[in-house]
Simulated scan of single mutants.
Amino acid sequence: MRLLFVGDTVGNMGVSMLQEYLPKLKRDLKPQITVVNGENATAVGRGISQRVYKQIMSAGADVITLGNHAWNNAEILDFIDQTPNLIRPANYPGPDVPGRGYTIVNVNGKQVAIINLQGLVFMDNLNNPFDTINAILEQVGAKTDYQFIDFHAETTSEKMAIARYLDGRVSALVGTHTHVQTSDYRVLPAGTAFMSDAGMTGPYDSILGMQTDLILKRFITQRPVQFKVAETGSGILSGCVIDLSDRTGLATKIRPILINPDHPYSN
């Protein structure tokens, strides 16, 4: 089993990069399932709309994950309950959270659980992700062959900690949210693939997808600035591809994907 994961899609350029490169990646890498984080995918860089959801799915995603901006576009409440392949962090508190925190996809007779979790450090005060994933695995662990987690979190330590905690219990855990691809991809000792952050997909000539001059103004003046998604310049697509054992359901290999002017695409 091969899984392709693409990190935080930011703005119109992020969607355009998916439309241009996701078909090529799927053609050349031949993944059986493709997951895309779309929590920054609207034109303003926060949340997702139904139109953008359909664009990402049409580009080749099988499942779209979200994160701390899941609810920033109120339109999501109109369609998230009808879209089982759009998932939000599973550890939102309360009994009546719209949508779902995981989904199970049938791939050639194999059951693949795609799970979305959000960290707590420097983030919103959600339920403990360690407790949440234990509860989810009790429900789906025995009836799924593979388990992939998009862990949307700020700190590398929290991402590493939950990956170590789950080592051997899930197929892979990849971080999102910081928009900068990390070079710590590896298969942990008990067989779980891990990467602290897959990176972002969107404007390359930016600061984390936002217009550079506005971010600089914020740092220099220390006064509030309204951030805007960069709309010009070149693009970037970041992610990873993970190979999973058909026998054990654990990982055999993980490697990064990075496409930008300094790393042009080649198959």
Rank of each mutant, 00 (worst) to 15 (best):
I76D: 05
V229T: 11
R247W: 00
L4M: 09
T9D: 04
L77D: 04
N85Y: 11
M160P: 08
I76Y: 01
Y185E: 15
F148G: 01
D78I: 06
L126A: 13
L214E: 14
G141W: 12
I236S: 01
N128T: 05
M210I: 05
T9P: 04
L25S: 02
R100K: 15
I114Q: 05
F122L: 15
N108T: 10
R88P: 06
I207E: 12
M123T: 04
G47R: 00
L86M: 07
I64K: 05
G109W: 11
L120R: 15
Q181S: 11
G99N: 14
A161T: 13
V241E: 01
L117P: 02
V112C: 13
I80G: 10
E75G: 15
I254H: 06
P31L: 03
N73T: 03
T34A: 12
F219W: 14
D243Q: 05
M195Q: 03
L22H: 02
V229H: 03
T65D: 01
Q211F: 02
V36T: 01
G94A: 13
Q19S: 12
L166S: 08
N116V: 01
V6M: 06
Q50G: 14
I48W: 05
H179E: 07
L117Q: 06
G60K: 08
P89M: 09
R255L: 04
Q211L: 12
I162Y: 01
V112H: 13
G175V: 05
R2H: 08
K26D: 05
Y102Q: 07
P95T: 14
A153T: 06
G209C: 08
F122S: 08
A193F: 01
A193D: 02
G239W: 02
S58M: 14
T192K: 06
K217F: 09
T232Q: 15
P224Y: 12
K143W: 03
G60E: 10
S206C: 14
K159Y: 02
R247Y: 10
W71Q: 04
Y53E: 04
E154I: 02
L188F: 05
I215K: 12
R186F: 05
N68G: 03
Q147E: 12
K143N: 14
I115K: 05
Q226W: 10
N68M: 03
I104G: 03
G67R: 00
D205S: 13
T212C: 15
N127C: 15
P189D: 13
L173I: 07
I115H: 02
V225A: 13
V121A: 11
L173N: 00
M210S: 13
E20Q: 10
V229D: 02
Y21E: 02
G199D: 00
N72H: 14
N267I: 00
G175H: 04
D213V: 09
A135K: 15
Q55K: 10
A142K: 15
D184L: 07
Y204M: 09
T65K: 06
F5D: 03
N40M: 01
G119Y: 01
T252H: 01
